[in-house]
Design a protein around this nucleic acid. Sequence first.
DNA 1: AATGTAAATAAGAATATTATTATTTAGCAA
DNA 2: TTGCTAAATAATAATATTCTTATTTACATT
Lengths: 144, 144
Amino acid sequence: MSRQQLLTRLKTKGYKLTQQRQQILEILLTTTSRLSALEVHRLLQKRQVKISLDTVYRNLRLLVEIGALQQISLQSGAVYELVQQDQLHSHVICVDCEKVVCIPAGPALQNSMELAGAAGFTILSHNMEIYGRCSGCSNNNSDC
Amino acid sequence: MSRQQLLTRLKTKGYKLTQQRQQILEILLTTTSRLSALEVHRLLQKRQVKISLDTVYRNLRLLVEIGALQQISLQSGAVYELVQQDQLHSHVICVDCEKVVCIPAGPALQNSMELAGAAGFTILSHNMEIYGRCSGCSNNNSDC
DNA sequence: AATGTAAATAAGAATATTATTATTTAGCAA
DNA sequence: TTGCTAAATAATAATATTCTTATTTACATT
């Protein structure tokens, strides 16, 4: 999701573009790895941005709600990544080492979204996680 | 998932059947609504069962991990329900009133599970949530 | 540019959830 | 039955996340 798309989506939904929100978006747009709320907060502090941790949490939640971010629930906490509209995917998560692998979710999702729509819902976002054990952890690889 | 299936699955995975665990299962098997960890704990205390909240959390997490429970992440916290193997479903959640509606997930899941398997994962459980706004909340029904 | 207003923030309090460690227990095997 | 051992529990302590309220800010409109 591009910077322009994010800004448009926020404005459309009636949300303001505060300094803090802008800075959070900047982090998300320029970081490739998945980030936790705490990590976003730390990165912002490194950049001398004054922002409360609570605000980071609140905004990440908001961005999930409007479908801009995808949330991944790990044992160690939640992490976030920008939604890639051209490449919708689900996550497979290793319960031991927390490795995350993406798998395409196109058709699977399509069907579900339609059913949700039929139930009278206006869909905002979605989240699909599959939990398992990766081959490394199944074989007790210590370096996994 | 039946009592027998639960017990078998625990034993198969090498887990013990403690008094506390047994009582948690009892609650899950005899309650139809979805429960939070706190609610399970309260219900147990009503039954004079001595158990720490921590143990409830730990066991619910374990039961999710072995695929006996399905976890639903609401804004107000996580709730749990027994997996219905003959009726696999996903959840559609209203971001305003937290109403939860089930939709069948068979084919959608099938495809994803295969992809996860192909990635080398041994699959333990899964979780699919679709977030949106129900018709009531879209129309600002106060009683929604 | 000044103003009104809904939305957003900060600060700190409150909850929810998870980790640590010493002690206890289930279930197997002698 | 008794003893053994891995697993489980309880009791904190520590984190993660959310809520409350007073104050500040974006931005639409004058």
